[in-house]
Amino acid sequence: MSRFTRTNILLLLAVVLLAAVPLLLGLGQGEEPFSGADSRAESAITEDHPTYEPWFSSVFEPPSGEVESGLFAVQAALGAGVLGYCLGVVRTRRRNDRRTTATEPGPTT
């Protein structure tokens, strides 16, 4: 395995660890552990400013948590799909370039 690949895997592992450690340590608190910071800000506003009335509501509200998480998954899937496609294209392009020029030693990845 090249140093390049090794470093990339370490980067990914670090990301997974950073996300997993709070869960493993059970750092969630309150009624709904690991609720969104955005909604916490929202409830902080309604607590301190009970008279404030949101003056506009969402044009479309996902009818259930399942539908909402499904839509979030669609967003992530679209992003990851396109990103993966782009990385695939540049990788294939590099291999083809290398084959036609054939001046560089072969990849050792």
Binding site: F34, V82, V90
Partner: peptide, 25 residues
């Protein structure tokens, strides 16, 4: 192509809610 990659990266990352040390996501 890279423009697409940059947009896609924002798309996927802003969809991921990640738990943090403060007990919120």
């Amino acid at each position: 192509l890279l423009l697409g990659a940059a947009g896609a990266f924002t798309f996927v990352l802003s969809a991921l809610k990640i738990p943090s040390v403060t007990g919120s996501s």
